[in-house]
Write a protein that binds this DNA or RNA. Sequence first.
DNA 1: ATGAATGAAAT
DNA 2: ATTTCATTCAT
Length: 867
Amino acid sequence: MKGSNRNKDHSAEGEGTGKRPKRKCLQWHPLLAKKLLDFSEEEEEEEEEEDIDKVQLLGADGLEHDVDETEDDESSEQRARRPMNAFLLFCKRHRSLVRQEHPRLDNRGATKILADWWAVLDPKEKQKYTDMAKEYKDAFMKANPGYKWCPATNKPVKSPAPTVNTRKKLWAFPSDSGKDLPSPKKAKTEEMPQLNFGMADPTQMGGLSMLLLAGEHALTAQEISSNTSHPEAPAPAKQCEESALFQFAEISSNTSQLGSPEPVKRCGKSALFQLAEMCLASEGVKVEDSKVTKAKESEGKSMEESEKGKVEREIKEEKSEEEKLQKTELEKPDEKIVKDCPSVTNFDEITVDQMKEGKKEDGEEIKKEELREDENCSHFIDPSSSISSKLITSDSPSRKDPICHSHEAVIIEDTLGLSKPEKLKKKKKKNKMDRHGNEKSTPKKTCKKRQSSESDIESVIYTIEAVAKGDWGIEKLGETPRKKVRTSSSVKGSILDTKSPKKKIKSKDKKMSKEKLSNPTKETKPLDFISITANKEVPGEIPECVRAEPLTPTEEVLPQSLPGQVKTEESDCNRKIEICGSRKSERSCKGALYKTLVSEGMLTSLRANVDRGKRSSGKGSSSDHEGCWHEENWSFTQCGTSGSKKLKRPKPKEEFVLGLAKLEEEFEKKFNSLPQYSPVTFDRKSVSVPRKKKKTGNVSSEQTKTSKAILLEDKTTTEPLRKTKDAPSVSSTPEPTTTQEPLVGSQKRKARKTKITHLVRTADGRVSPAGGTLDDKPKEQLQGSLPKASATDIDCNEECSQNIEAEEIRSITPDMPAVSAFFSLAALAEVAAMENVHRSQRAAPLAHDGQPKEMPQAPVLISCADQ
DNA sequence: ATGAATGAAAT
DNA sequence: ATTTCATTCAT
């Protein structure tokens, strides 16, 4: 509650307000932030007392600041941006592809293409986007309940209105219903007055967070505050099921409320570092292994006992710290800063010290450290926090709400800390950069694609675990490190820190697996969730970026299903392990760890900017310079603000930022998880579509077919042909459109929709049907794997396209197909089948069942019908 | 700053 | 029914 507010500086920041160029702001982050702020405000008023009582820490300051902050935020915040709709999401996701294909095309043109794609996109796929959009929207709304799409008449946008509106509750619970009901309504709020903290599952959270968690645990968790402070804490068990976004949002909100996010984050960071250090130390010192293990165990088990004392101590420390802080705010901040961005050496020293001083107690030590930091950062500390940590550590079987909450909260924060460099100052960046520089060699960047990160994370986790256990080499023996990981939970009490995370993961996995089993087909719905998890679990790609199969649609890529990938993974793991095991391992390990982390961060940004990245290549330097951390897209406008402010006060903003960042991260992740389709698919479809019409409506039949082929990861291969096509299309396209109608805006749109315009345009685009043919061919070639392709296309591109069209349009009418056509189709089908088989063999057993047969047939029938 | 697209919300 | 605005970025 109040903690968050503490900065008044913020207000000064009016700049935030000013700024917001519009473009780069945060999308929904701002909202969230706002929410948070609002929330905090409200809460303060209402709960203030309680909180104070409990905490007793800083009282007044917080409030005042809060107010200021709030205002600032509000003002600065400006208006949150609308959540993107499905189409926009789609555009965002695919624009880069389009651009890739048609470099010459300007955005408008690209947009048109995207529109076409969208038009032909299978309903199923579309649905995914729609769902995502909805989720997004819901989350958004939750974040800002009163949000109005249109800012009322004026552009007063900024301050006033939002304040009033927003006031609501915010973080009420989204719960499942959230999806359905966007309405921010209040009922919920009242029902579940509280926020539920905890629902976040580690699984759902970013892998990074997991990593952190693991790290922390390993080290000795120290967590701090986080949630317990809330009296009502709630608990919504079911929440686990909620979407990650919501959870994040909630969590963040919670965090904000507590106001201690920052500290946590810091802790996380430090923990991470420590972990890394440990790795080093263990190696270097050698002795460490056993010690560490012991320490952990002792910690885990004995923690509870010692907890009380610890807590007390902590509290005392806190107080003293606090006092100090108050007295010497100036100084502290500096110190803090230092800590925050400790030079490498410092860091090392610290770690070393810790190691030396208390292997057993390192946990405590760490805690202290963190506490101090926290204090520095924020005055707020929660006694309960210690408890929470305890719980976590102990890893009670119940693992229910409270624990979950704490975990989640912690995790989140950690993640935030890592991921969010934000604008924190160059210092941080610098440090990071340095670090990166040291280890930098990682080529990871290259691997831009999505899954890699997860896999990396996993590996990292693994590594961490190993480190924690001190097993370095031992695990190596086990061929199935992976497996072990999954199953490991059963072992010991899972008391070990490391374990807990694992356990969770595992549980999730189980769940997943179950689900999978139940639905081999894989439902889209749970997809987000599943996909994410899956990714994590199965790291198809490793840092190496070797992706034999570029196509790993989220759906298809069931973890278990792909032996090949798994294998790779294993090998990878082994390799890693080996490395670790080796004497030099420390270095490599550490390097790996950092690298991974770094890369993770980088990846994130990269992902976010994939498109721009290319373009910015010119700018590349700048991007590098910035650090991997923030992505322009998601970066907050506030950056400027914070920067302007002083280093010292980053807190509140940071918090928000962090929280936001978290959310954003999550969002990003989700967004990234959205399927991306290869242009080829669309082209083909589009070809067909235009003729007949797109909206007719039922394309369902064909979906399957397409869907299969569709997903595209990245492959750029297709380009060359496309380019050729582009030129013509481009030239042609614009003209007609323009010429034809003076109509503007909605009218045009309408017209288009109605059809005429569209047709015309298409025709143009199509103009290239001739060209289209060519295009098709190449495309198909490119596709290669696609079943349909090859032979048939060559024979009759148009026909094929027509057929397709026909399919789409009316799968119903069964005509007798021309023999020739039939054959060709049949051949195709066969080929396809073969393909499938092949694929299945190679890829996954799962795929096996349904697809091969059905797929081919369907097309055939359909096609027949056409002709 | 404009616009190209779609969609959701508001008017 | 029409406006507004969300994303993207060359123009």
